[in-house]
C-alpha cells in the first residue's frame, strides 16, 4: 500500500473525528505510541548532555502526544513474504498517558480470535505487565515477555517495539535533516546505553518539523537494517496530531504489517476498573 493511498483510506475515518481545537502540550510521539495496538511505539527519550537538540526534539514530541484517554478501532493487516494476507480487527481503549498508562485491546475479528483481550499495564521504570484473556479456554494468562525480540503474535512488530522505554537508557544524536513523504524532518540516531538490553544496536527516527510526529523509524542490528516503521495518514484528532496508518516492514523476512486506526477519539470517559484482569473476563 502506498503512503498516499493509505492516507486517503484512513483520512475518511480520521476526518469524522470530533477535533478539539484546544492547544495540547502533549508530545506527538506519545500520541503515535498511544495509537498502536498496544498503545506503545518507540519512545526514544534520552537526555545526553552532548545532544541537547536531539533530546529536546524527542522531549517535545513526547509532550505533544499526551491525552487522558483514547479509543479507536484498529485493523491490522499482515502480509507475509509469499503474499499471504491475514487481517484482524479490534477495539482499543487506553487510560492515562506515558509512564502509567493502561490499555485494553479486544479482538473482534476473525472469528477464531473474537473475544481475545489483552491488558497492558505500563510502568515508567520497567517493562509493561501484560495479560491475555482467551474466551475459548476460559481463563486469563500473564504474558511472559522474557525474549522481547520475538514477534508480537505473528506481526512484524516485536514485543520490544511495543514497549514504553526508559528514555534515560538511550543516547541521542541529531544527524541531519531529511524529508519524509515530502515533509521536512529531523533525523535523530539513538543507541542503547550500557546496561540497557535491546535487540537493536542503533535506531534512526525522522521527526516532522511541522507537528513533531515521527514519520519513520529504522532499526539496526549490528549495522544491518532489520525493521522499518513508516507512519502516514497524520491527522489532527481533537488537537492531537496522530499517525493513523503505521506500516512496519521486516526486512529480513520481507514481510510487512499495516495498522490502521479508525474512529479514533481522545479523552473519552473511562474507569480504572475497566483495566484489570477481572475486567478482561467480565467484559467479554
Amino acid at each position: 500500500m502506498s503512503n498516499r493511498s493509505s492516507e486517503k483510506q484512513i483520512g475518511h475515518e480520521c476526518t469524522r473525528i470530533n477535533t478539539n481545537k484546544k492547544e495540547q502540550s502533549s508530545s506527538f510521539l506519545i500520541r503515535v505510541y498511544s495509537c498502536s495496538f498496544v498503545a506503545l511505539i518507540f519512545l526514544w527519550l534520552a537526555i545526553p548532555a552532548v545532544a541537547q537538540d536531539a533530546r529536546q526534539i524527542v522531549d517535545e514530541s513526547q509532550k505533544r502526544g499526551r491525552a487522558a484517554s483514547q479509543h479507536y478501532e484498529g485493523v491490522l493487516e499482515v502480509t507475509t513474504s509469499n503474499g499471504k494476507v491475514t487481517t484482524k480487527s479490534w477495539q482499543s481503549y487506553r487510560l492515562g498517558s506515558y509512564g502509567n498508562s493502561k490499555a485494553v485491546i479486544r479482538f473482534t475479528a476473525p472469528a477464531e480470535v473474537k473475544g481475545v483481550a489483552l491488558l497492558v499495564v505500563n510502568h515508567p521504570e520497567r517493562s509493561s505487565d501484560q495479560w491475555m484473556w482467551t474466551p475459548a479456554i476460559g481463563r486469563d494468562r500473564r504474558i511472559s515477555l522474557q525474549d522481547r525480540s520475538t514477534r508480537f503474535f505473528g506481526t512484524d512488530f516485536s514485543f520490544e517495539d511495543l514497549e514504553e522505554r526508559d528514555v534515560d537508557q538511550y543516547d541521542y544524536r541529531l544527524t541531519g535533516e531529511e524529508p519524509i513523504d515530502g515533509a521536512p524532518c529531523w533525523r535523530i540516531e539513538s543507541r542503547p546505553r550500557q546496561g540497557k538490553t535491546s535487540q537493536y544496536t542503533l535506531s534512526r527516527v525522522w521527526i516532522r518539523k511541522d507537528n513533531y510526529v515521527p514519520a519513520q523509524y529504522e532499526n539496526f542490528i549490528k549495522d544491518q537494517l532489520v525493521r522499518r516503521l513508516h507512519q502516514t495518514a497524520i491527522r489532527n484528532v481533537q488537537g492531537i496530531w496522530t499517525a493513523c496508518a503505521l506500516e512496519m516492514t521486516d526486512l529480513r523476512r520481507n514481510s510487512r504489517t499495516v495498522l490502521r486506526l479508525e474512529k479514533l477519539e481522545y479523552n473519552v470517559p473511562m474507569k480504572d476498573d475497566d483495566f484489570t484482569v477481572q475486567s478482561l473476563r467480565r467484559d467479554q
Binding site: 480470535v113 475459548a136 520475538t150 503474535f153 505473528g154
Partner: peptide
C-alpha cells in the same frame, strides 16, 4: 530461524 512455524500465533493461543 523463521518463525512461520505457527500459521497464526494468536489463533494458536486463542483456540484450545
Amino acid at each position: 530461524g523463521d518463525e512461520d512455524v505457527i500459521d497464526d500465533p494468536l489463533i494458536f493461543l486463542a483456540q484450545p
